[in-house]
Design a protein around this nucleic acid. Structure first.
Lengths: 196, 196
DNA sequence: GGTCGAAACGGACCGCGGTCCGCTTCTATT
DNA sequence: AATAGAAGCGGACCGCGGTCCGTTTCGACC
């Protein structure tokens, strides 16, 4: 075998025009989301802005949720990168406890900033599974570093659940709770789960 | 003043035909949800089944989410009643810790049973605010009984967050985690939050 | 019972998400 | 360069949630 043979690719490597269209659609969607806000972005608009037919959008991204998830993914990826290899205390280099707190605060803010996009991206499962379980995996790792014993998967879920948009939405918009109080409450939660 | 005078009613007491229609709509919706499943229930169907125009549905229930929330509310009310005045350990009479665990398990199951209806009822805020904060208030009360100190509102939120449908959905459908493990994980969480 | 304003009604209508299928474009092969 | 057929394309079309407004019904008051 030579280096010209395709090495363990996907069985169907994307065709050139398809790739071009995917890029065009993604760029158009991102632009429209930024300028008009998520709510005002219709599939027809994205299609015409990208200069493709509507069918193409749905073949590439499955649904509106899928497209929004793809847009969201752009910033999510950057955020993940800063968790994995950015400067401390979010990135590696700081003590695990500091990293965990930085993680929570950062995630909290990221969720609030992209609130409407996250809502439009819909239930997890539409977003890539890998992206979704990243947070859980990272928290599990940090809890391990802190010497926490028990069902770490469950504990990580418990730590992350209060940061979910649906919960934050209720607290911020409905109950008018300040960001500081939410952060403090989350810090307390972490302390109780880790400590003792 | 006599007993014939309306006592501190809403300013606009519902007209007779309006009340009749509300009942008919709710009954039709409930029936259709039970027989065909939430996903197959369209507003047109409910309207014709109830023998009213579509406009009436939307005037009474605001949106599809609102209608589904109203349907969901029927069973939620019953559940709340059993928490407030049902038999122990869920109702009053048992030690606070037992009640709390019973509460969590009961809520967990209720959420899973009505999963699709809850999803269709959409974000909180569509459902009545009272109904939504009931769980939080109850948990806060139980935590107080247990002598927990701190920001009880935040702690109650932390206790309830892992029971939210969006979290459970991920665990049950995506990660295939058993109900027992979820319950055990939640029990552990409660112990850590209360204890120490 | 008759009158009148307000409230409720209902179905035609709209926009959007999503599908379908005949046509076009790409690329592997010779 | 020619070819063939798979992959991609696009826009007409559909169903559903939601709105609008001319018409009907209610019930308070005379």
């Amino acid at each position: 075998m030579t280096h010209l043979l395709p090495l363990a690719d996907d069985p169907a490597p994307e065709r050139a025009d398809a790739a071009r269209n995917r890029q065009a659609i993604l760029a158009a969607a991102l632009h429209l989301v930024e300028t008009r806000g998520v709510a005002c972005v219709t599939m027809d608009t994205v299609a015409s802005e990208a200069g493709v037919g509507k069918g193409t959008l749905f073949r590439r991204f499955e649904s509106r949720e899928g497209l929004m998830a793809a847009v969201l993914n752009e910033s999510e990826t950057a955020w993940q990168a800063s968790v994995i290899s950015g400067p401390p205390p979010l990135g590696p280099g700081a003590p695990a406890m500091e990293r965990l707190h930085a993680f929570g605060h950062s995630r909290l803010r990221a969720n609030l900033v992209h609130a409407d996009l996250i809502a439009a991206a819909g239930a997890p499962g539409t977003r890539s599974v890998a992206a979704l379980s990243f947070a859980n995996m990272h928290v599990r790792y940090l809890l391990g570093e802190l010497g926490v014993t028990g069902d770490l998967l469950m504990l990580a879920t418990a730590v992350l659940a209060p940061l979910e948009m649906i919960v934050l939405e209720q607290q911020v918009n409905r109950e008018q709770i300040s960001l500081e109080r939410i952060e403090a409450g989350w810090d307390d939660l972490v302390r109780r789960i880790v400590g003792c």
